[in-house]
Simulated assay, not measured.
Amino acid sequence: MNNKDELLKIFSIKLRTILSKLNLNYDLLQEIRLRVNAPLLVIYDNREYFITAEAELALAETIPYIITKNEIRETMEYISNYSLYAFEEELKQGFITITGGHRIGIAGKAVLEENRVKSMKHISFINIRLSHQVKGCADKVLPYITDEQEECYHTLIVSPPRCGKTTMLRDVIRQLSDGTKNRKGIPVGVVDERSEIGACYMGIPQNDLGMRTDVLDCCPKAKGMLMLIRSMSPRVIAVDEVGSVEDIEAIEYVMNCGCKLIATVHGNSLEDIISKPILGKLVKEKLFERYILLDNHGEVGHLKEIFDEKGVKIY
């Protein structure tokens, strides 16, 4: 990870010192968890570890370093550059995206106004989710989701949590947008509701999504898909984690407009997706033409199976 030092700057002085001494490959570091009066935890190479005051990894809760309220406060000051007010809109969503595309999830006391979250105070829990872009991870997938005329199939990427579906989607977008030796690049529109695909900071994607990609950041998926169709003329629209009634209605609209759709969803199998009351309708009607199933066997984003619209296994 090239921006390791920049990432460490967001932590309190004490935490920064401990984390800087850890002998870690930051390409395998997935999450750093801070909770008031609870142990310092990391998710590293798909395993949870406690961190000791001596900057050592431990699988068991043996004398871990305990996070204090002041360290949470100091860390939030560094994250927000001493101005949480400037991140008011992000706080409503429960996260802040920082330089490098890393997402800072926060929890505490929600401040409500007319039954909507207005802000957040007494922040006591922080989850730093590190952004990792794996260029080339979609190399095996791309031939199966495009045809001889370089058109893209309506595609659904299915995987359990932490199995690389967003990472896979990100690289599919980049390769479709930039083009490859065998395929011309095409315009792609991305609705990035939780800032996870492009990881925009001040409106600029921190991840490489390709030269022909337009991004709607922090926009609800259903509204964003319609906005992109009307304003940016994409050939392909990409969204992450679909599932609501509004999402499905927007997906049907996109498909009927002649625009191709690539989406992701949590699931363990094709049968799992079919059983979902809302999304299962699209599967049964054969609106999606390709299903990419991932798992983490051996590596995050491991390609498990690919099915066509009839449920026939083609990989």
Rank of each mutant, 00 (worst) to 15 (best):
Y144S: 02
Y82N: 14
T166L: 10
S177H: 08
Q149V: 06
F87T: 11
I123E: 01
L169E: 13
N70V: 11
T166W: 05
L176I: 09
G101T: 08
E113S: 14
E151M: 14
E114T: 11
E148A: 12
F95L: 13
V158Q: 04
E148S: 11
S131Y: 06
I106E: 06
L112W: 00
T97L: 12
M76K: 09
K184W: 08
L169V: 05
I173Y: 04
F95E: 08
A138S: 15
K121M: 06
K109P: 00
N81A: 12
A107R: 11
I186P: 02
G101I: 12
S119K: 03
I186R: 02
I96T: 13
R103P: 07
E151K: 15
G105L: 07
C152P: 07
F95W: 10
V111L: 15
I79G: 04
E148G: 05
P160A: 00
G136S: 10
E113D: 12
T68V: 11
E151Y: 12
V188Q: 13
N70G: 07
Q93S: 14
T146K: 11
E74W: 00
V141H: 09
E151H: 15
A86P: 02
I157H: 06
S177Y: 08
T180Y: 09
R170D: 14
Q175K: 13
I66Y: 00
S80W: 07
A86E: 14
V190H: 11
L169M: 07
C163V: 04
C152Y: 02
S80D: 09
T97S: 15
R170M: 01
L176R: 09
T99I: 11
K135P: 05
A138I: 01
D147Y: 05
N115W: 04
V172N: 04
E90M: 09
S83H: 04
V117G: 03
C163E: 03
T99F: 07
G136P: 12
